[in-house]
Simulated scan of single mutants.
Amino acid sequence: MKKLVLTGAAGSLGSRLRAPLAAMCDELVSTDIVDSIDDLGANETYVKADIADMNAVEPLLEGADMVIHFGAVVDEAPFEELLGPNFIGAYNVWEASHRHGVRRVVYASSIHAVGMYPKNEAIGIDVPHRPDTFYGLAKCFAEDLGRMYWEKRGLESVCLRIYSCAPVTNPRAVGSWLSYDDMILLVKRSIETPITGFSIIYGISDNDRAPVDNSGARHLGYRPRDNAEQFAEEIYAKAEPLDPQNPSHYCHGGPFAGIPLGKSAMSLLNLKKDDADS
């Protein structure tokens, strides 16, 4: 690769992708809304940019081979707060990619695009959208945007429905965990695969209790290596009994499925400050 562009480079997941991506290309352009980031690689440039501003996004993509789009508000919030970064930002990335002849967008989608399905349904990559929040709705919008740009304009997209990419701290994560190493592997496979067209794949490790089915995306060559079963006994021993009538417990979206629209869910996940979920 000559040039890769990474949005959301200052986030928990984006920051872990910078070095692996830099090793895959001649030039990595990292971008976010913070003033600066530390430890830039020798072939990495940082540009502060708001993805909701097309005039800021478009110049970044000139000459790029692919965009790894991880920039967004990563929580439920009022629709008006998500409109710019999560909806318009997605349009700007795909449209600017089209204008500059970018080959592929690798997008950090989320389980919350289908978060209202019950967990006893092992859903595949082809189930209809069933968002649990405005945040999940933005992921549905971007996935449909990616499909449309592939079918109408030939711009490839790989949508990574990330589940729980954070340390295992709760019973849900025993099934939904995506380790940081597997996350990096997933992104690398999404870049390296010669042809993807429009593809969806769940971002999840090789957990014994994984409640989603990735068999329809084997063409991407993603074979996760980690398994959250190693944490199961300790996590279950500490956890309070779960309520089978509570959407936060029985739906794929976890707390996102149980909260009122527009209210934060990340605070309910028992994560450390620098960790992310889906």
Rank of each mutant, 00 (worst) to 15 (best):
Y149T: 05
H98G: 10
G254Q: 01
R18P: 05
P260D: 13
N92K: 06
D50M: 03
A23Y: 08
D144C: 08
D275S: 15
T45Y: 08
E233S: 13
S190T: 11
G14L: 10
A173E: 02
R189Y: 15
L83G: 02
W150C: 02
D126N: 08
N120A: 00
I191V: 15
A42Y: 08
S278A: 11
A265D: 04
R189N: 13
H249L: 05
S164R: 04
F70Y: 14
N270F: 10
Y135E: 07
R99T: 12
V187L: 09
P78H: 05
G84M: 14
H100I: 11
G262P: 07
E192F: 14
M266R: 15
R130N: 15
I235Q: 06
K273T: 08
K139M: 07
P241I: 06
A42F: 09
E240F: 05
R172I: 03
D65M: 10
E234I: 01
Y180I: 13
I191N: 06
A108F: 01
V106R: 00
P118N: 08
I111A: 07
E62D: 15
H219D: 07
S215W: 06
I37P: 05
K3Y: 13
I235E: 05
E76H: 04
E229M: 03
M66T: 09
V29Y: 01
C140L: 11
R16H: 10
A257S: 11
A138L: 03
K2E: 14
F198K: 00
I111Q: 06
S12R: 12
A257R: 02
V114R: 11
A10H: 07
S176Y: 02
Y163L: 13
H100R: 14
G221L: 10
L21G: 02
N214D: 07
M54R: 10
E143P: 04
I195T: 12
G115S: 07
D26L: 13
L40T: 05
P247D: 08
S110A: 09
S15A: 12
G89F: 02
V5H: 07
F256A: 15
L242F: 04
P118M: 04
G154T: 03
S267N: 10
P167R: 04
V105A: 05
N227Q: 09
N55C: 01
D50N: 08
I88P: 06
P20Q: 09
A42Q: 09
E58R: 12
T133Y: 07
V73Q: 11
P118W: 03
G124V: 01
P171K: 02
Y149M: 13
N92A: 06
D277I: 10
G154S: 06
I200E: 00
V187F: 09
A72M: 14
A42R: 10
A210D: 01
Y236F: 08
A52D: 04
I37K: 07
E95T: 06
R16A: 13
K152N: 06
G84W: 08
N207R: 03
S176W: 03
G203I: 02
D39P: 01
I204F: 03
G221N: 10
D132F: 06
K119Y: 03
P78Y: 04
T196M: 08
V168N: 01
C165T: 06
D243V: 12
I184C: 10
Y222S: 09
